[in-house]
């Protein structure tokens, strides 16, 4: 389980740095070039993915293409929705909804359909996490 926690830490740090760099992009006066930044971001991620695949001699099957398509569209649609929503609503409304909403939705759907049982500590952790996200984004 130690290795799993290390992967989780990589997910936390990787996403956190990406968000900080997005802030740095705005602080550098390049916020108006967000469409170009998105192209560069996804293109570098693709290149990184290719290098990893070549390095580990991995292959892509049809099932992975289909899942990748679904996840990729969701990722892009989510980011686009946040950018569009910010044009209508203040950030303190958009971020708690868009960041906190999926935590609740995924927890509910997982417990309803996948019958995943969570320990008491985990449930408390998720509750604290939802409140933390609301406070951090408001």
């Amino acid at each position: 389980m130690r290795q799993a926690l290390l992967w989780l830490a990589l997910g936390f740090i990787g996403n956190g740095f990406a968000q900080f760099l997005q802030k740095y992009l705005h602080a550098s006066g390049l916020g108006g070039l967000q469409p170009s930044a998105l192209i560069l971001m996804y293109a570098t991620g693709t290149l990184f993915g290719v290098l990893l695949m070549v390095g580990f001699r991995s292959e892509v099957t049809l099932l992975e293409v289909l899942f990748g398509l679904g996840v990729g569209v969701c990722s892009y649609a989510g980011n686009l929705a946040v950018l569009r929503a910010l044009g209508f609503l203040p950030a303190y409304t958009v971020f708690p909804a868009v960041v906190g909403g999926p935590i609740l939705t995924v927890a509910l759907l997982s417990s309803l359909f996948a019958r995943q049982r969570l320990s008491r500590n985990t449930v408390w952790g998720i509750i604290c996490g939802i409140f933390a996200v609301v406070l951090l984004t408001s």
Partner: peptide
């Protein structure tokens, strides 16, 4: 599904949509 393959396809799809 293979982790690296999913990672590659996700960013590939994102690149096309962003372009």
């Amino acid at each position: 599904c293979e982790v690296l393959a999913i990672n590659f396809v996700v960013f590939g799809v994102g690149t096309i949509l962003a372009l």
